[in-house]
Design a binder for these strands. Structure first.
Lengths: 147, 147
DNA sequence: GTTCCTGCAAAAGATTTGCAGTGAC
DNA sequence: GTCACTGCAAATCTTTTGCAGGAAC
């Protein structure tokens, strides 16, 4: 694979942050590399635990600072799954994105995407006459395993 | 419309809770009556302030207990508008419901409903083969006033 | 050398829990 | 009288902030 196309998410993040005048510290790199490898959203504590398990523990405050920076630059998304429980995940630079189903039984977060849903939201924002920069859709129910 | 049917939300709440073996205390009644009159979602602190302003202050713990009870029985909904910021609103017994746009400029929460969106979510849950009990849609952008 | 990054400890908020007293039925 | 409801204070949990030292450029 690989000619010269489609930058990976990490590369994209690095170039956006560099352009914004940020240096590359160790803690930030580790959070970015970890997020880049995730199939789905993680909480700050899960990120902390995962990095500790890999032998590169970093302070929780740093994790929140990195996440805040990523969200601010539109590079990551915060998914609110409950009172005081946020999870974070990478936003693909291509603009592709997905939504989540949170299972009441097992608590698992399942990702999915759906063009019909995107279309409905487009129509809606046009109808309302508002500018929608971002949308979160969170379904609650039972996943196929728990059904 | 209206012969003798369609119970109001408060009535519905009272009958559901009574059936579940709950008594009717003062604090609970006040929170329920307040929520019944709201056009849109309130935070726990807003509820506390509103009740204090009406001269019937109640403990914040009681507010959270009432809200938890309502959510548990499917009588109210929690809307997560940010990290550590939940708002609550009544769920109409008819099943009618709406979603929200939160304005980045003024922070206002705007309610709307949209049949196209509901349809898209129906189709989606059928396609995924999951049972969706509840869905939250939260748009972020600028409202008409701030546009 | 200057400016940004990091970790630690403390702070700030939101929400929950323990407990003793009060009220509903 | 019994069991649920309430308020207060304390505890818990997530997230943010202040600050001193260390790293990037």
């Amino acid at each position: 694979m690989s000619h010269t196309e489609a930058p990976t998410w990490s590369e994209h993040v690095h170039s956006v942050l560099a352009r914004a005048g940020h240096q590359r510290g160790g803690a930030r790199e580790r959070v970015i590399e970890l997020l880049a490898r995730q199939p789905c959203a993680l909480s700050a504590v899960e990120i902390e635990d995962a990095l500790r398990a890999e032998g590169t523990p970093i302070g929780r405050a740093s994790i929140y600072r990195v996440l805040e920076l990523l969200v601010e630059h539109g590079l990551a998304e915060r998914v609110a799954v409950g009172p005081g429980q946020s999870r974070f995940e990478a936003i693909d630079p291509s603009g592709a994105h997905h939504h989540h189903l949170i299972c009441r039984e097992c608590g698992r977060l399942v990702a999915f995407d759906d063009p019909g849903l995107e279309r409905a939201i487009d129509n809606l924002s046009r109808r309302l006459g508002v500018r929608v920069e971002h949308h979160d859709v969170l379904l609650r129910g039972s996943c196929e395993k728990c059904e």
